[in-house]
Design a protein around this nucleic acid. Sequence first.
DNA 1: TGCCCCCTGCAG
DNA 2: CTGCAGGGGGCA
Length: 317
Amino acid sequence: MPELPEVETIRGGLEKKIVGLTIKKVDICAPKSFIGKAQEVQGKKVIKVWRRAKMLGIDLTTGPAGGSSRPMSSLNAAGTRRDSLRPRHPSLALLFHLKMTGQLVLDDRKWKVEGGRMVGGHPTPDMRDAMPNSHTRVVFSFSDGSRLYFNDQRRFGWVKVVQSSELGVQGLFEKLGPEPLEKEFTWQILKQNLLKHKSTPIKSGLMDQQVVSGVGNIYANEACFNARIDPRARSLELSNAQFKKLHQGVVKALRDGIKHGGSTRAHFVDSEGHRGYFLDYAYVYGRDEHPCKICQTEIKKVTLGGRGTYFCPACQR
DNA sequence: TGCCCCCTGCAG
DNA sequence: CTGCAGGGGGCA
């Protein structure tokens, strides 16, 4: 599900709640969803929550609980890189990829057992569906009684126990393109990367994680609209002025996504179980047969690379 | 550079 | 029943 704005929304919510907590227990309901040894993270303390592309990382102390360790990550609250790229210090982390339907929901009602019954707070209406259910694949229990649920209906997602050496230049992140909300993402870089695939539709190019990381189907559609460019256009056909508009369009779409707490089509909820509202503000995604918010022309839907593609035939040329 | 596939569920 | 869904790895 989640693209950059959704993962960033989850990251921000989790950071406020779990930094400093110790993982007491890991319950794995779906073995294929958990890669690595759960034992390695039990007793470890959370020191940072970060994001790279559409992946979310939780840095853990490497030594016994309380031991000191340095964060593996490099992204601050705004999703921008603070300490530059690498080298990363040796440490341990949990790395999540939520794919299409993954959720990370923190249940911080402090459950107490009274008279054999669980007693706690009241879940929000949105959260009720995200509580441990038939789609819960992994449950992390923390020292203060709170729990983190990794839910994933379609089972495409995963969580992996990683060492810092597995990430970075030679690791899992090796092929990822630039972070679109960082300085390294310029219109020139975008142009250069898109031109590596001259005949690929521009919207499909934006979804290529080697071109720019973190953009998925919703925000690629919105970025093309923001730039007033036909999503079917080929990179070879674009002028420099259009590459600049596309660059701005990507950044605007992602920032707006974060501003509205992400997009909820069907499954996305943030770490508190609340949906996101960006789709209320979307210009084209999911709006086929509806009037364009700018010119009233009917929004069209086509398929590109097997993915639903929405655009305004009048605004986007 | 395109499919097919991993899976589950829902809408038409 | 078929088709489609915030992703992306693998294979021809």
